[in-house]
Nucleic acid binder design. Structure first.
Lengths: 285, 285
DNA sequence: GGCTTTGGTGTAATTTAATTACATCAAATC
DNA sequence: GATTTGATGTAATTAAATTACACCAAAGCC
């Protein structure tokens, strides 16, 4: 276990002064590793030996050794804590927090996602006659992204963010068609309807949504992410990123399943974009 | 660049004694971080000040600081490397890899992003008469997402993924308008044109794109992410996620800048969605 | 309720480690 | 061959961390 987590975990077993030290370290871990024991003691408003004892309590040899461990924890990417943005955060603070909580969300998603279901979803997608991506609001952009990805596979794919179009599309679906419904909460009524309609018409419905939601109930296959969402800002952030990564995973599974030959086709699509771009060589700095 | 790589790279510029130090450190980096300067000097068969000078040469403040950096380099090695998906990866493997490389990309983005520029971008956005988000292809969904976010702020915001509409919109822009152009490569000709047109019409142009790209040259402000992209699959994945997180950050900065009163408005928008949803209580499991 | 003990905390002394200042030596240049 | 430059080590100095010890507060005991 890394030192940072260790501090968080054993916060209860700390004494009053030790907790002060812990707070300061957790608040500015980066500063800590560049401070002397005296500076840190002052920041936490405790004596130097208290800091030293704190270090020992965490199974390090002393303060310098503790800093070493801390440095490694920090290097390990992130203190994957889902830190919330606060009123008086400056640009550095909220930037760091958003990156970190997004990464924390992805980490959580990775651990929660069910590989079996992913595999079955890939199965279904590779055999689809037609693939439709539906999302509303914030999930609409995820659906768009999915369309963009699967479009490159030269598979019939559509994407609607309009309820009426979605409805018509769902009614016209038939066996062999795959409908992917995207919704973080899984409680958007219109989308639940769409899923139900599609199923009635024998399409396979994949839900990228919360497990145990109304939408999930309407789906053939549910890909749940269970991301701890920071709702402070009243906007879905982390969940949507996790959804995108999930789309990436499905797309990747798709290409792998289709084999080498197929991937050459992808390259062709990519090459076709070249004409619309400035060449890397053309543009010298 | 991490210290370990730095040592390897600059091995030529070292003096005889310094090289002895370098050799010892590279041979047992793990031991080094737990040794005193005296111990290391003895191992390398040089004097202590030589070791100190060696540390300074690598842009560290001294020996303890050097050890800190070294500790981080060592920790950095393993956890999230940008592991590439391979031909015969199963679902577990590619799922894990995609999550990890996305997280690695975010980590890299976090370290590269320029806070100053973010702050200025937020400045510009909060003062905008109108905000336009433009993207093409994969970046279109990012633009959509941005629109969705900023729309909630009750600010005039548009988003076009159609070149003609983008062009018309850019021509009609004027001072006080902000145009955000999104492109991973920054080499999409059409979007460069749009940026140029917008600027000619006195709009402020923010580019979410690669630093040093043709698009960047056309922008007032460039938010660069420098994400190591996995191009194996011929699709932008990680970069687009980083762009989204950047949008999240801008949106967050925006709300924070606007103050408490404004955030109540956000809650209203969120509450307004309630009617279109199944209530949490209505739906028991 | 007062006494004792235990655990936590700070002050000051001590020890250890790192850094600086300076002297010396080697190699390169004139 | 002399001089200068840069590299290195020795010794002194400074800074940092640790230890020893004293004190205080809270919990348990008589």
């Amino acid at each position: 276990m890394n030192v940072l987590e260790k501090i968080v975990n054993s916060v209860n077993s700390f004494s009053k002064s030790e907790r002060k030290v812990a707070d300061v370290i957790l608040a500015n871990p980066q500063t800590t590793i560049h401070s002397s024991i005296a500076a840190l003691a002052k920041m936490a408003d405790v004596s130097e030996p208290t800091v030293n004892r704190f270090c020992r309590r965490l199974d390090t040899k002393g303060f310098p050794d503790f800093k070493l461990h801390l440095a490694q924890s920090l290097a390990n990417g992130t203190p994957y804590v889902n830190r919330h943005v606060e009123e008086d955060d400056g640009p550095e603070a909220y930037t760091a927090k958003i990156f970190e909580s997004t990464m924390a969300a992805l980490d959580a998603a990775r651990q929660n996602v069910d590989i079996q279901t992913i595999n079955r979803a890939v199965d279904v997608l590779t055999q689809a006659k037609k693939i439709s991506f539906f999302g509303l609001g914030a999930s609409a952009s995820v659906a768009h992204d999915a369309q963009n990805k699967f479009f490159r596979f030269n598979v019939p794919v559509v994407c609607f963010d309009d309820i009426v179009m979605q409805r018509m599309s769902a009614i016209n679906s038939s066996e062999g068609d795959v409908v992917v419904c995207i919704s973080h909460t899984g409680r958007t009524k219109n989308l639940c309807d769409i899923a139900a309609i599609a199923r009635e018409n024998d399409a396979t419905v994949i839900g990228i949504t919360a497990y145990d939601s109304p939408l999930a109930k309407e789906c053939t296959l549910v890909l749940s992410l269970d991301v701890p969402e920071d709702t402070d800002m009243y906007m879905p952030m982390a969940s949507r990123v996790a959804q995108l990564v999930l789309i990436d995973i499905l797309a990747t599974g798709f290409t792998l399943r289709r084999g080498t030959k197929f991937r050459e086709n992808l390259k062709k699509v990519k090459d076709s974009l070249r004409g619309s771009r400035f060449d890397k060589k053309d543009f010298a700095g």
